[in-house]
Computed example of a mutant assay.
Amino acid sequence: MKISKQNAEHYVWGDGCDGWYLHKGDETIIHERMPPGTSEERHLHERAAQFFFILTGQVVMETDGEWLELGPQEGLRIAPGTPHCIHNRSHDAAEFLVISKPGTKGDRIPREELKPD
Protein backbone atom coordinates (compact mmCIF):
# COMPACT_ATOMS: atom_id res chain seq x y z
CA MET A 1 0.00 0.00 0.00
CA LYS A 2 1.20 3.49 -0.83
CA ILE A 3 1.82 5.66 2.25
CA SER A 4 1.59 9.43 2.59
CA LYS A 5 0.68 12.08 5.16
CA GLN A 6 -2.91 11.78 3.94
CA ASN A 7 -3.30 8.12 5.00
CA ALA A 8 -0.62 7.71 7.71
CA GLU A 9 -1.37 7.55 11.43
CA HIS A 10 -1.23 11.14 12.70
CA TYR A 11 -0.36 12.54 16.13
CA VAL A 12 0.19 15.98 17.66
CA TRP A 13 3.18 16.72 19.86
CA GLY A 14 4.71 19.75 21.58
CA ASP A 15 3.09 23.11 20.89
CA GLY A 16 1.08 22.37 17.74
CA CYS A 17 3.62 20.14 15.97
CA ASP A 18 2.44 17.23 13.81
CA GLY A 19 3.80 13.76 13.13
CA TRP A 20 2.81 11.02 10.71
CA TYR A 21 3.99 7.42 11.09
CA LEU A 22 5.17 6.36 7.64
CA HIS A 23 6.49 3.06 9.03
CA LYS A 24 6.23 1.32 12.41
CA GLY A 25 8.21 -1.82 13.13
CA ASP A 26 11.71 -2.67 14.30
CA GLU A 27 12.46 0.86 13.10
CA THR A 28 10.19 3.88 12.73
CA ILE A 29 10.02 6.45 9.97
CA ILE A 30 8.12 9.59 10.87
CA HIS A 31 7.34 12.71 8.84
CA GLU A 32 7.12 15.66 11.22
CA ARG A 33 6.06 19.29 10.85
CA MET A 34 7.07 22.09 13.25
CA PRO A 35 5.38 25.51 13.03
CA PRO A 36 7.58 28.61 13.38
CA GLY A 37 8.87 29.31 16.88
CA THR A 38 8.34 25.78 18.25
CA SER A 39 10.77 23.40 19.92
CA GLU A 40 10.94 19.93 21.35
CA GLU A 41 11.59 18.96 24.97
CA ARG A 42 15.21 17.98 25.50
CA HIS A 43 15.54 14.21 25.88
CA LEU A 44 17.56 11.16 24.96
CA HIS A 45 16.96 7.59 23.84
CA GLU A 46 18.88 4.81 25.58
CA ARG A 47 18.65 2.30 22.70
CA ALA A 48 17.54 4.12 19.56
CA ALA A 49 19.77 5.86 17.07
CA GLN A 50 17.94 8.55 15.10
CA PHE A 51 18.51 10.26 11.78
CA PHE A 52 16.82 13.62 11.12
CA PHE A 53 16.55 14.66 7.45
CA ILE A 54 15.18 18.14 6.69
CA LEU A 55 12.71 18.35 3.81
CA THR A 56 11.69 22.02 4.02
CA GLY A 57 12.52 24.96 6.28
CA GLN A 58 15.36 25.56 8.71
CA VAL A 59 15.89 24.03 12.15
CA VAL A 60 18.48 24.19 14.89
CA MET A 61 19.44 20.90 16.51
CA GLU A 62 21.05 20.84 19.93
CA THR A 63 23.02 17.67 20.61
CA ASP A 64 24.72 17.30 23.97
CA GLY A 65 25.28 21.06 24.29
CA GLU A 66 26.37 21.73 20.68
CA TRP A 67 24.16 23.68 18.26
CA LEU A 68 23.91 22.93 14.54
CA GLU A 69 21.73 24.60 11.88
CA LEU A 70 20.14 22.28 9.32
CA GLY A 71 18.38 23.27 6.11
CA PRO A 72 16.65 21.43 3.25
CA GLN A 73 18.35 18.24 2.10
CA GLU A 74 20.62 18.15 5.17
CA GLY A 75 20.59 15.53 7.91
CA LEU A 76 22.09 14.58 11.24
CA ARG A 77 22.48 11.24 13.06
CA ILE A 78 21.91 11.19 16.82
CA ALA A 79 23.62 8.31 18.62
CA PRO A 80 21.84 6.43 21.44
CA GLY A 81 22.33 8.13 24.81
CA THR A 82 22.89 11.60 23.29
CA PRO A 83 20.73 14.37 24.81
CA HIS A 84 19.12 16.36 21.99
CA CYS A 85 16.28 18.64 20.94
CA ILE A 86 15.16 20.35 17.75
CA HIS A 87 14.05 23.99 17.42
CA ASN A 88 12.34 25.88 14.62
CA ARG A 89 13.48 29.46 15.23
CA SER A 90 12.53 30.60 11.72
CA HIS A 91 9.39 32.35 10.47
CA ASP A 92 8.34 29.34 8.33
CA ALA A 93 7.21 25.81 9.11
CA ALA A 94 9.83 23.06 8.89
CA GLU A 95 9.17 19.50 7.74
CA PHE A 96 11.56 16.60 8.21
CA LEU A 97 11.89 12.84 8.44
CA VAL A 98 12.95 11.09 11.64
CA ILE A 99 14.22 7.55 11.19
CA SER A 100 14.74 5.64 14.45
CA LYS A 101 16.26 2.20 14.91
CA PRO A 102 15.08 0.51 16.96
CA GLY A 103 11.78 2.35 17.33
CA THR A 104 11.57 4.82 20.22
CA LYS A 105 8.39 3.57 21.92
CA GLY A 106 9.17 3.44 25.65
CA ASP A 107 12.75 4.64 25.02
CA ARG A 108 12.36 8.41 25.46
CA ILE A 109 13.92 9.82 28.63
CA PRO A 110 13.39 13.53 29.42
CA ARG A 111 16.56 15.24 30.56
CA GLU A 112 15.39 18.56 31.98
CA GLU A 113 18.44 18.88 34.19
CA LEU A 114 20.72 18.90 31.12
CA LYS A 115 19.10 21.89 29.35
CA PRO A 116 21.82 24.32 28.26
CA ASP A 117 21.58 27.97 29.34
Rank of each mutant, 00 (worst) to 15 (best):
G106I: 14
R77I: 12
A48K: 03
N7C: 05
V98N: 00
L22C: 03
K105L: 05
H43R: 15
H43I: 10
I86M: 06
G103V: 03
I3M: 11
F53N: 08
A8G: 07
I3Y: 03
I99V: 11
T63S: 07
M61T: 02
I86W: 00
E41T: 10
W20Q: 06
P36C: 07
G71T: 13
S39I: 00
E74G: 07
L97Y: 08
P35M: 04
Q6E: 11
R108V: 06
A79I: 10
I99D: 07
Y21P: 03
P102G: 09
G14P: 13
E27M: 14
V12W: 10
K2L: 02
A93Y: 13
D92L: 10
F53L: 10
G71K: 12
T56Y: 06
W20L: 12
K115M: 00
P80C: 11
E9W: 00
Q58D: 14
G65M: 10
M34S: 04
G19P: 14
Q58G: 01
F51V: 12
S4I: 11
M61Y: 01
G103R: 09
F52G: 02
G103C: 08
V98Y: 00
P83H: 08
P83D: 08
L44H: 09
S100Y: 00
E40Q: 04
R77G: 03
W13L: 05
E32M: 07
L68P: 02
F53E: 14
H84Y: 13
G106V: 13
S90I: 11
E9V: 01
D107T: 05
T38N: 09
V12M: 11
G16M: 04
H31E: 09
E112D: 15
L44E: 12
K115A: 01
E46W: 06
I3R: 06
S39Y: 12
G14A: 03
E95D: 05
P102W: 02
E95V: 09
I109P: 14
H10G: 08
K101Q: 06
I3L: 07
A8R: 06
F96V: 00
G37K: 09
T28Q: 07
C85P: 01
M1N: 05
E41P: 08
H84L: 01
E62P: 08
A79K: 10
I54E: 03
A49C: 12
L55I: 15
K5R: 09
N88D: 05
G106D: 13
G25D: 00
R89D: 06
K115H: 02
A79D: 15
G25T: 00
K24M: 06
